[in-house]
Structure formats: C-alpha cells, structure tokens
C-alpha cells in the first residue's frame, strides 16, 4: 500500500511537470497550521501522542499521510486530517517538515554499544533515520514508540520490514528499544 501511494504521488509529479505540481514548502507551511497544535510548526511535537516530524524524510511523511488518507493506517485523529488533504497538499506539507533538519545527541554517559541492534541499520544509533522510508525516532516519547511497535506486532499497523521485526519482540524488548530512543536529545532547526 505504501509503495502504491508513492507511485501515485510520483505519477502526479511526473504528469504535472509544472511548478503547480512541484512540492512547495512555503505552501506546505500553510497546510501545517492544521498540524501545529500537536506536531509543532517546526515539527517538534507539542504533546506525547504526536511524533516529532521536523526533519523527517519527505518520502516517509508522504507515505504515512497517504496511508492515513487511504485507510491503510488508522488513527483517531490523523485519519480525519488526512482525509481532507489533496495529494498536492500532502506533498507540500511533507516538503515543509522535511525542509527542517533534525539533529540528535546521546545523553551523557550512554554508550553507542547499548543501541538496539535490531533498529540501528534504518533508524540510526541516535534515532536519526538513515533510510528514506524510516522515521526518525530520536527524542520520541517512549509511549509513542511502544504504541507503534505493538501495533506492528499485532498487525494493526503494517510494513514489510517492521511487521516482521516487531512480530518477534517481547514487551520487554519493545520497552527497552523505546527507552533508548526516547532518551536521545533532539533538536530541530531550519535555515531560511
């Protein structure tokens, strides 16, 4: 479903070929007014139920918004928001948040060796994503990460890689992984 969503967006952009179809972070900033109460206008979450999305890969943000819009992913608030967005608005707002830079630092006294090996190849040791289709996890509320991993484990959220990984995780591991990334210090900046 996620691949399909990207294909649709890619198709739109190719078919357009005009500025109207290119993603526009400035337009996206206007769309982001709908997001800012929970995610912050800069993508630094203002409440633990919402993930930090500033500096997230644009591909990931687009894919998730399309998944909420199509019903492939469900959330009591995001399903409502995404259903009102056009593909162009999704592309724009993803571009706005992706135009920020997320940087992370491990808290003093922690060793990189303690990072969860199951996660680091996509999400990084410090929770800054190194794959276009993986979200940053740095500084996320541990309860948010726990919620997502449990959803992958029982199948209420699906992803070709995550579903398989989460299926094997115990509650104990899920909490440990979540705790690792939630302790990371996250900064989100944007150059004008």
């Amino acid at each position: 479903m996620r691949l399909a969503a990207i294909t649709i967006l890619g198709g739109l952009m190719l078919a357009g070929g005009t500025p109207a179809f290119a993603d526009d972070p400035v337009e996206g900033q206007k769309v982001a007014r709908m997001c800012q109460t929970c995610h912050g206008i800069d993508g630094l979450a203002r409440m633990p139920i919402a993930p930090n999305i500033g500096g997230e890969p644009k591909e990931y943000l687009e894919a998730q918004l399309m998944a909420f819009k199509t019903g492939a992913r469900e959330h009591e608030m995001m399903t409502v928001v995404a259903s009102t967005l056009s593909a162009q608005q999704i592309s724009d707002v993803a571009a706005w948040y992706a135009s920020h830079t997320a940087s992370a630092s491990l808290p003093a006294g922690t060793s990189e060796d303690e990072a969860p090996s199951e996660c680091v190849s996509c999400h990084g040791i410090d929770g800054i994503s190194i794959a276009l289709n993986a979200p940053n996890l740095a500084g996320e509320a541990n309860t948010y990460i726990v919620t997502q991993l449990r959803a992958f484990r029982i199948g209420t959220r699906k992803h070709e890689i995550m579903s398989e990984i989460a299926a094997k995780l115990s509650d104990e591991q899920i909490r440990q992984f979540a705790d690792w990334y939630s302790k990371v210090n996250l900064q989100i900046t944007r150059e004008e």
Binding site: H75, E76, M77, T143
Partner: peptide, 9 residues
Amino acid sequence: PAEEESFNH
C-alpha cells in the same frame, strides 16, 4: 484486549 490499545483514546 491488546488489539484495542491506541494512544490518544
């Protein structure tokens, strides 16, 4: 039931 866990609600 664990399947009915969410975050917000």
